[in-house]
């Protein structure tokens, strides 16, 4: 992550086109961001298929890591949605693993953090939002509209409550995408700022350089925690929204 000093700490988020590609007038260039998405996808596939290959009774370290991930998501889904959430297990698992691996890949030096891209986080949030809404309507038909009038609200308040509930529903995907984007962007910007201090201060004298160095190490550890936590929060919130759509509160 620590490149030459004096660089703008936001420059790490710059997207550049690596391979030009397009269909008709549409520009579908493979950007550096797309390359890291593919890397994350490939790593998730390797992680979940290669180590599970030998059907050993006593799992090795990697295999038990895979199994823990599986049961972690399965339990999360069961706790938040219940039995009816089972068909969505592959979706939530994919969502969690993709975000987790993108976040973790972003921790590598000189790498690119896919999940610090607005389009990516909002795209994922939009997929969840649209999917959950479709599930709600498939499950309850037009009765899903009752979702916007909570139980126990007196009739005369309905004109006030319903627009607020609809607005609150529409805010969900925005806050979902924004949360992931903001956490990853803020963390990496901060890391970059502190890392920028290490080299010039270190060139001056070793001791002053050690202070931002320690800060960088501390921040890096914090970033690893956030990388996991944000993937977890994204998945849990998706589960909660799914629960709402299936059970209507």
């Amino acid at each position: 992550m620590a490149t030459e000093s004096g660089h703008n700490p936001l420059e790490q988020f710059a997207v550049s086109s690596a391979v030009e590609f397009g269909i008709g007038d549409l520009d579908l260039a493979i950007t550096n961001s797309a390359i890291w998405m593919m890397a994350a996808t490939a790593l998730v596939i390797i992680f979940t298929t290669v180590f599970i290959g030998r059907r050993s009774m006593v799992p090795g370290r990697m295999q038990s890591l895979v199994e823990i991930s599986y049961e972690f998501i399965a339990n999360m889904l069961e706790d938040n949605v219940g039995d009816q959430g089972r068909p969505f297990f592959p979706f939530v698992f994919t969502l969690f693993m993709f975000i987790l691996f993108c976040n973790m890949l972003g921790m590598l030096p000189y790498s690119f953090t896919v999940t610090s891209q607005v389009v990516v986080t909002f795209g994922l949030a939009l997929v969840v939002f649209i999917g959950v809404t479709i599930v709600g309507f498939v499950k309850h038909g037009l009765g899903f509209f009752k979702f916007f009038l909570p139980h126990g609200v007196p009739g005369f308040l309905a004109p006030l409550v319903i627009p607020i509930e609809i607005l609150s529903y529409l805010i969900r995907p925005v806050s979902l995408g924004l949360r992931l984007f903001a956490n990853l962007t803020a963390g990496h910007t901060m890391l970059k700022v502190f890392a920028g201090f290490v080299a010039p201060l270190g060139a001056l004298w070793i001791l002053p350089g050690a202070i931002p160095m320690a800060a960088v190490i501390g921040l890096t550890l914090l970033e690893f925690a956030i990388a996991f936590l944000q993937a977890y929060v994204f998945a849990v919130l998706s589960c909660i929204y799914l629960h709402d759509a299936i059970h209507m509160h």
Binding site: I171, V174, S175, L178, R179, A182
Partner: peptide, 13 residues
């Protein structure tokens, strides 16, 4: 952070 994100999202929408 959670509250800030939630309020900013509400504001934006």
């Amino acid at each position: 952070v959670r509250m800030a994100v939630e309020m900013v999202a509400a504001l934006a929408v």
